[in-house]
Every structure is written in C-alpha cells, then in structure tokens.
C-alpha cells in the first residue's frame, strides 16, 4: 500500500526536470519520456503513471467528460494507525489532484465511445475505499445506461485497511455492478498495470471479457513477500508478472503501453462497431 518511489520519475518530470528510469537508472529529457508515455526509451520499463496521465494517453484529446467528480467517502471507522486516516486522505487528495484513487468518465478512443476508469496508485496505493468502489460501480452503471463498452485500467494494492470490512465489501459491490453491464451485453475490457493485487484482482479486475496487461506488471492475490514469509517457498522466475499469467491462460494479451490505445481501438472496432446480418440477429 505504500507509494512506490517509482513514482518519483513522473513527478520529477512534471516539474520540468529530467526523468530517471527506476529500472536501468538512465536519465532522459522530460519531453522525450512524455512522448514515449513514460516507457523508458532505453529498456522499455513502464513507469507508473497517475490516473490523469492515463486518461490523457487513452482518450482522444478533449473527449473525456468526468463522472461523479465530487463523490468522496468518509472515515467510517475513525481510523488511526500511526496517523489519522483523514489526514492521509487530505494529503493524498492535494498531492494527486483527485478526490480518491479512481478517475472515471466517458470518452472516445480513436473515435470509439467508451466508459473509462483509471486507478491512481499514488493515491494510497490505488486501494479500494468505499468511495473508489462507489465511483467504479457508478462508472459501470453509467456505461450500461449509455450503452457504452467499459474500459478500466487497474493499478491497485487491493484493500484499504483503514476502511476495514467496508473496503472488503467493495469487491462485492463492483462485481454486483458488473452484472448490469453483462445483462446489457456490453463488453468490459480490463487492463492490468503495475501493480494489481489482492481484492482488486480477486474481484472486478479479473472479470474482464477481455483482459490486457502491461509488460512486467506485478499481478496476484497474495504478494510475493507474504507468500515467502508464510510458506518459505522458492518463487519461480518471473512469478506474478503479466507474462507469467499470460502463459497460464489468465490474461489475453500483454500489450506495450505505446500500443495500448491502438489495441483498444481494434477491440472496440470489433466489439462496439456496427453489427452485420448474422450477429445483428443475435442482438
């Protein structure tokens, strides 16, 4: 749930300075890595990007219309660990320029209209609060109402401990909302990016009609460190990466971020394009 230092590369860039790759440590001019969508020009490491940047990368310019912009949650448990949860929330809201860890809205992708949701890992690890769950469920429902395919980019550590069992129940909420989309026969394209763990991958994120993942993203139910501590097992090479899950039939395609918009548009062209005589008869 901690905010990774991999994020600092992007933040440094926002301030106009250079971008240092967290993987190969090479430094590049800010404008150059913005042009490669924060994929390292040298080693192709995919740096984590926030929700606003993700939408900028996927939605056609000027097409994004945010949904439920003012919807926020509350500190239901009065939670205090080493700090008050309300203080953590205030700080994250100010830093990430988001009400909580999920940005939702409608937009077009190379002309194809879709409901869009993007998690923000920099906001308390993209964790599932009641507000995140509600924003996600509403985005799914707005998509169903507007007859739009739904595209969600997940980057989430899983549960938000500070919301206790209410966080856990967001798994049920999101899956319940997805039933509406299925009943409307609309596609859900789930895109997994680094990292997608715990309650997020064990609920909505694993239920995409099509599941894509960025290269080398960490994806799994239980984190590697916890598994090692609990079982003393040796972890196989590439454990819990996108490629690992793809090889086991759990992810449809591993897609480089620089190709993601084009692949999405191709999927939407098939799934949301005009029906022919045969498939129209099924509608």
């Amino acid at each position: 749930m901690s905010v990774s230092t991999a994020y600092t590369g992007v933040q440094a860039n926002k301030e106009g300075s250079a971008f240092t790759c967290a993987a190969c440590k090479a430094t590049y001019p800010a404008a150059q890595v913005a042009g490669t969508l924060y994929v390292c020009p040298g080693c192709s490491h995919h740096a984590r990007v926030g929700a606003h940047e993700r939408i900028r990368q996927l939605a056609d310019k000027g097409s994004f219309q945010e949904w439920d912009a003012n919807l926020t949650g509350t500190d239901r448990l009065g939670f205090f660990d080493t700090r008050a949860y309300v203080d953590r929330l205030d700080e994250a809201r100010a830093r990430q320029q988001l009400p909580d860890a999920l940005l939702t809205g409608s937009g077009t992708i190379h002309g194809f209209a879709a409901g869009l949701a993007a998690f923000d890992f920099g906001f308390l690890g993209g964790s599932l609060s009641t507000a995140v769950g509600e924003r996600l469920a509403r985005a799914i429902e707005h998509s169903a109402e507007a007859q739009l395919p739904f595209v969600c980019v997940t980057s989430s550590g899983g549960a938000r401990m500070q919301e206790g069992v209410f966080s856990l129940m967001q798994m049920a909420k999101s899956v319940s909302a997805l039933h509406e989309l299925a009943e409307a026969h609309l596609p859900f394209i789930s895109i997994l990016v680094d990292p997608t763990m715990g309650g997020s991958i064990a609920s909505f994120a694993a239920l995409g009609d099509v599941i894509l993942a960025e290269p080398k993203a960490m994806i799994g139910f239980t984190g590697a460190r916890v598994i090692t501590q609990a079982t003393y097992e040796q972890l196989p090479a590439g454990f819990q990466t996108s490629e690992f899950h793809h090889a086991r039939g759990l992810i449809d395609r591993v897609v480089d971020r620089r190709d993601l918009k084009a692949v999405l548009a191709q999927l939407l062209a098939v799934l949301a394009g005009p029906a022919g005589e045969i498939d129209q008869a099924l509608a």
Partner: peptide, 17 residues
C-alpha cells in the same frame, strides 16, 4: 485464501472473482 506459489500459478484471484 491460501497464500502460496501453486495457488497463484493456478489463478487464485481469478477463482475468487
């Protein structure tokens, strides 16, 4: 859910979802 390598390899998160 069981926190182990084999469980993850066989799609623990997918199975729960």
């Amino acid at each position: 859910a069981y926190p182990g390598v084999a469980a993850e390899e066989r799609g623990q998160a997918w199975a729960i979802a």
